[in-house]
Design a protein around this nucleic acid. Structure first.
Ligand SMILES: [Mn+2]
Ligand SMILES: [Mn+2]
Ligand SMILES: [Mn+2]
Ligand SMILES: [Mn+2]
Lengths: 232, 232
DNA sequence: CTTGAAATTTTGACTAACCCAAATTATAAT
DNA sequence: ATTATAATTTGGGTTAGTCAAAATTTCAAG
């Protein structure tokens, strides 16, 4: 009685569902940028699940034509998969931006909060969020809000790669370690800020830098989580 | 390798999860208001699932101490269940309000869009949404945004119950039929508007009314989906 | 107090997304 | 050709949801 009969194909092509697909696609896109095709072990590490779990998922992803899967030889995104990956990344960054700009979250909270519901909003909500935010170009951590795959590419030069005397502008920062983000904020490091390296200790030692007008000491780990564009 | 070991108890007490629990609790609360204890068949009808499905779910709900379940004799919410039900209703209405007020959705879209992600946001996001919205008292359809169970109670007088000559203020409207909501809007019917009945046909016939300053004919079904408070 | 219809639960399945350890197999490098 | 490593297969397991059909319980009439 009262039960709805049929069902629905559900995963209707260009749609991101409640499943982990979006998350896998995001990771694959990033990893493919490092080296393509992407191996099972790379994904296993990055997704923090067992290799056998990844193989499982790859078969499902391949079934949906989102990846080209050659057993034992890794995977690449299909055009369709790439489109969805970009869409997932875009959505994540828009939601992060919503959380900071409209709800006042700190940047170290935005990433995880976004993961909680970003996969459940409709395309229409995403569109309206984007408008309401005034069509921002980047997420709170400085990463571009992409439309197409080329937009996802990002500055790869880390603060640590600078030599004494060099100046640069902070473009983006790794957004997955809340504690590090807090600390960065306390140092005044954020997208848009200018930095200058004064001293760089050997053996992965700390750097003495100017962050804006402030003298700051920055360790190796942190300096490698900051992406910059060299100036002059 | 890289796999996270343990697990987590997950459903950690006062939390609303990704599951249907929240949805069931909302329905139970409403039905209990009509007649308590709530029967399996009433829930089956209201949730649009088979009775056996309901029985299943009742066992799970009872396992989490959210309902008092006496097989064959219906259920009531436990204090804990009632608290969660109110929380779920509150959250739904806040999210609806967010969709209309901050994102510009029409009221006939808000209900369904809200269902898509309301169960996935954190308590903190809910709190901040509520603040950002300026602590509204009601959802876009006129229902209160509750803090405790008493707040959920609502005007039960329908527009159709008015007799010719009587005046009333629209308090709320049924929010689950998008097409009806569209039509209501086109008639100018919305919370806060004053209505006056001029003629009421017999046999569940239509009413001639004044909606604000406009002459409007309102059918039985629609008039029963509008809740009012009599004036004078 | 019996009986039978109606309501409800049980039984037995099914799907879909996950996830993993251990055993097996394929690849590629020596 | 051997072998280490990577990847897959095998064989599980979980949670969350769903249903039809069979069995059971309740309750109201007789
Ligand atoms: Mn992020
Ligand atoms: Mn970010
Ligand atoms: Mn609603
Ligand atoms: Mn509403």
């Amino acid at each position: 009685m009262g039960a709805v009969k049929g069902s629905s194909p559900k995963t209707s092509k260009g749609t991101l569902g409640k499943d982990q697909f979006g998350e896998y696609l995001k990771h694959i896109l990033r990893l493919e940028h490092v080296s393509s095709p992407v191996s099972t072990s790379a994904l296993s590490e990055s997704m923090k699940v067992a290799p056998s779990t990844v193989t499982d998922m790859l078969k499902r992803l391949a079934g949906k034509k989102l990846i080209n899967y050659v057993p034992y030889h890794g995977i690449t995104l299909t055009p369709e998969g790439e489109k969805l990956a970009v869409k997932a990344i875009r959505r994540h960054r828009i939601v992060e931006r919503f959380l900071t700009d409209m709800l006042g979250f700190e940047w170290h909270e935005a990433h995880e909060e976004a993961l909680l519901f970003e996969n459940d909003i409709s395309d229409e909500v995403e569109r309206r969020l984007y408008s309401a935010l005034n069509r921002p170009k980047v997420c709170p951590h400085g990463y571009p809000i992409p439309t197409k795959v080329e937009d996802v590419l990002v500055e790869e030069v880390t603060l640590y790669s600078l030599e004494p005397g060099e100046q640069a502008e902070v473009m983006s920062v790794k957004d997955d370690d809340p504690e590090m983000l807090r600390f960065m904020a306390s140092l005044g490091i954020k997208p848009g800020v200018k930095v200058k390296v004064e001293v760089k200790d050997p053996f992965k030692g700390p750097m003495q830098t100017m962050v804006g007008k402030q003298k700051r000491t920055v360790g190796w780990h942190l300096a490698n989580a900051v992406f910059v564009k060299k100036l002059r």
